[in-house]
């Protein structure tokens, strides 16, 4: 077990890409999240999984309990807006009757799952029925109207025409169906971020069974942390079954150094915010959830 103050605890870390061409067609990066959940479903390790599916508006995510390959595939690709994944956590065990629940989501949602397992406040059945979690790396998220402003006002593209969005190399990238590529410098997007993200102390989903993101690996590949015993078991089986191509993380560029740098930047900045909240008013502090 490796323990890093910024990258959390993990058993191993690799660069990987799905071998499923259909999944890769619309995956955000290496199709890790989708492929893992499809594999776990088909092998009976989960009965279904919470994913960020399609909402009512263009690029608005909506949490969905997916119980088929088809529904898991519908959630491919990153939506840069809030998808309250955990709102379905208990219902998944009740209305949907799942005994083995999968969860995909960002770092704070992995934290929410673990809190629900250790402190199950009105979360009957949840602690023992969470079967497998895949967490995403996450620097920040945006309210829907923020994302709309970035895409429509700053990048001057209509949301309905967008094929993919991505945050990388210091910019917010918008790719349209017709082949337009527009970028917005992150300097301009910071003010639109969800405020709750500014006290977030996790960049790489430290509490997931397996966590994944793009940073650290070449385009089209993903960086993958295998963190728990359960994650290790599922990952080993999936790799043995030929679901992924893998490369040692040490052999790829830009590698773990960049990831560590970004993780440190995020966490140090947010620690500072938490510190500043202590003296926000005149003899009045803003609340610290970690105290």
């Amino acid at each position: 077990m490796i323990e890093d103050p910024y990258l959390g605890k993990y058993i191993s870390c690799v660069s990987a890409r799905s071998t499923d061409r259909e999944i890769l067609k619309k995956a955000q990066d290496g199709g890790i999240a989708t492929t893992l959940m499809v594999y776990a479903l088909e092998e009976g390790m989960i009965d279904g999984t919470i994913v960020a599916g399609e909402g009512d508006r263009p690029w608005q995510p909506k949490p969905v309990v997916a119980m088929t390959r088809e529904d898991i595939l519908k959630a491919r690709g990153t939506k840069y807006s809030i998808s309250p994944q955990i709102s379905w956590l208990k219902e998944a065990t009740r209305s949907f009757g799942l005994d083995k629940v999968g969860v995909t989501g960002v770092c704070c949602q992995m934290q929410a799952v673990r809190k629900a397992q250790l402190y199950p406040i009105n979360m009957r059945d949840v602690p023992d029925k969470v079967a497998f979690t895949v967490g995403l790396f996450c620097m920040e998220n945006f309210p829907y109207k923020s994302m709309q402003s970035i895409v429509e006002d700053h990048a001057a593209q209509s949301l309905g025409s967008v094929k993919k969005m991505e945050i990388t190399k210091g910019k917010f990238w918008v790719y349209t169906e017709r082949g337009n590529v527009a970028t917005v410098p992150l300097k301009a997007t910071h003010k639109y971020e969800q405020p709750g993200c500014h006290v977030c102390l996790d960049y790489v989903s430290n509490l997931a069974d397996i966590s994944t993101g793009s940073v650290g690996s070449p385009d089209g590949w993903s960086t993958v942390f295998i963190r728990t015993k359960k994650g290790n078991e599922i990952w080993s089986k999936a790799v043995a079954a030929g679901m992924f191509e893998t490369k040692p993380i040490e052999d790829v560029k830009p590698g773990l150094d960049l990831l560590k740098k970004l993780a440190k930047e995020k966490i140090d900045k947010n620690q500072k915010t938490i510190e500043e909240r202590k003296t926000f008013g005149v003899n009045k502090a803003l609340r610290n959830p970690y105290a």
């Binding site: 955990i86 379905w88 956590l89 949602q109 009105n122 979360m123 969800q194 609340r287």
Partner: peptide, 12 residues
């Protein structure tokens, strides 16, 4: 300024 929209409250 702490909510990050995870949805746990609704589940509980």
């Amino acid at each position: 300024g702490l909510c990050m929209g995870c949805g746990t409250c609704a589940a509980s």
